[in-house]
Each structure stands twice: as C-alpha cells, then as structure tokens.
C-alpha cells in the first residue's frame, strides 16, 4: 500500500496534466499553432541550464523562461505582422542552441526526454495547481476563444479584450508545456498537446466533441504509456508519445466525416 500510494498520486497528476494538454491542444490546433508547440517548448532548455547553475529546481528555471517566452511572442506578434510560427521558430531555435551550450550530459537527456523518479512536494503541488489553472482558463474562456478564433475584429466588438486574451492564451500554453516537463521532457510535451487534438480534429464537427475526444485521447495515451513504461522500467515520456502517435496513425484509417 505504501508503495502503491505515490504511484497512484503520480498517475492522477499525470492524468490531470493530460486533461490540461488535451484542452489547450484543441485551441492550439484550431489556431494553427501545431508547429509552434514543439519549438516553443525548447525555450525551457536554457532555463533548465540556468537553474542548474544557480542550484535551484530545474523546473522553476524552465517555467520562468517558458512564461517569459510567451510574453515575448505576444509582444513581437503585436508589433510586427509576422506570423506567430515564424517568431516562435526563430526565437526558440536560438534558445535551443543556448540551452544546449549551458546544459550538458545526463541533465540534457532528462530535460529533453523527461526524468524518472519521485516528484518533490513542490513539483506535485505545481502540477496540480498549474493543471487546474489551465483547465479552468480554457473552460471559462472557451466562448471568447471561439469568437477570437473566427475573427479578432468580431471578438473586439463582442466585448472581448483580444490582446489580453491572446496573452493569457500564450501564458496558459507555456504553463501546459511546463506541466509536462517533469514527466515527458522538453521535446515530448509539445507532442502530447498537439497529437490528441489533431486526432480529435479529424472527427469532430462541434467544439464539445473536439474537446472531449482530445482530452480522452490525451488521458488514455498518458495512462497506457505510463503503464508500459513502468513495466519496461523506462522513462514514461517516449512511451506516452508513442501511444499517442500510434492512435493518430490508427485514426488515419478511418475516413473523416463530411
């Protein structure tokens, strides 16, 4: 029983993280941010390096830089007319280069692919609170996000503060990536945000179905991937993404409804 409790806690936490990823991914996919999730997660890397140098928990360094990166994208996107993906791509390719210089060896592998081991109390609390923030944000703001998605101008005349909503969305997106760092690592968290939503988009014809399918796939991939990884005695991140990717390829076998 003593052995089982931390495992169950960890599983519940990763399920919560998967719900957040499924919800956030739905809007990221609909906003054509599919390719942005991956490079955006790279900015966590120099944060991890700096945190290790300063001898603080790498998670906090990663989180700080992810949130800073979100504000940076928001500010650059407002000033220029360059598409978000170009800004994200360039900024975070540089971040990855810097990160790989100041992080090295095993730390780098852990940061990229996720580390095994028990979570500290602070990490667990961050996981719970962070996931709840993302879940509540998406569910509460879904109407504003839907209108913003169709037309920013319509949103403006519907009493939506579009600039603020965009900032909160990017911060929530960065937070979602931060949630997965400990489990999946920098490289793989973007995939858990995008793949379930990409599967959902193939079949959903309404927002409710999109959100539901995306969350169910994210949770299922996380649960199955974590179980297989524990049996194999390996880090869970790659297995979670392999299961999600497998489901995506399976989904290609079914024709899309028109």
């Amino acid at each position: 029983m003593h052995e089982l409790a931390p495992e169950l806690g960890s599983l519940a936490l990763s399920a919560l993280m998967a719900v957040a990823a499924g919800l956030m991914g739905s809007f990221a996919v609909m906003r054509r941010m599919v390719l942005a999730a991956d490079p955006m997660s790279h900015i966590a890397l120099p944060g991890i390096g700096i945190a290790l140098v300063l001898r603080v928990n790498p998670l906090w360094g990663a989180l700080a830089l992810l949130l800073l990166g979100a504000v940076l994208i928001w500010a650059v996107e407002r000033r220029t007319r360059i598409a978000t993906e170009a800004v994200i791509g360039v900024t975070f390719a540089v971040a990855l280069a810097v990160g790989s210089v100041i992080t090295s060896g095993e730390q780098l592998i852990d940061a990229l692919l996720g580390a095994r081991g028990t979570l500290t109390l602070h990490e667990a609390l961050f996981g719970i609170i962070g996931a709840l923030i993302v879940i509540v944000f998406v569910l509460r703001q879904r109407n504003a996000l839907v209108v913003r998605l169709v037309s920013p101008e319509i949103a403006m005349t519907s009493a939506v503060n579009v600039a603020r909503l965009d900032l909160y969305f990017l911060l929530a997106f960065a937070l979602t990536i931060g949630l997965g760092l400990r489990f999946l690592g920098v490289l793989l968290m973007g995939s858990l945000i995008i793949i379930p939503a990409a599967i959902a988009r193939r079949f959903a014809r309404s927002l409710g179905r999109m959100l539901t399918v995306s969350v169910v796939v994210a949770v299922a991939a996380t649960a199955v991937g974590t179980y297989v990884a524990s049996v194999a005695g390996r880090p869970s991140g790659p297995f979670i993404v392999m299961v999600a990717g497998g489901l995506f390829f399976l989904s290609l076998l079914r024709r899309r409804e028109t």
Binding site: R142, N143, V147, V150, S151, S206, L207, G208, M210
Partner: peptide, 24 residues
C-alpha cells in the same frame, strides 16, 4: 466582417459560434 475564409475542417458548428456570442 468581410467574407471570412474559414477552414472547412474547423470543428465549430453554427451553434457553437452563436452560443459563444450569446454567453458573452
């Protein structure tokens, strides 16, 4: 607005769109 180019596979139906504004 002027004619919007909406992606054909966007999983939002008319009800989602109208409900969103109604809620706001």
């Amino acid at each position: 607005p002027q004619r919007l180019d909406i992606e054909r596979d966007l999983p939002l139906n008319g009800r989602d769109f109208l409900r969103a504004k109604a809620a706001l």
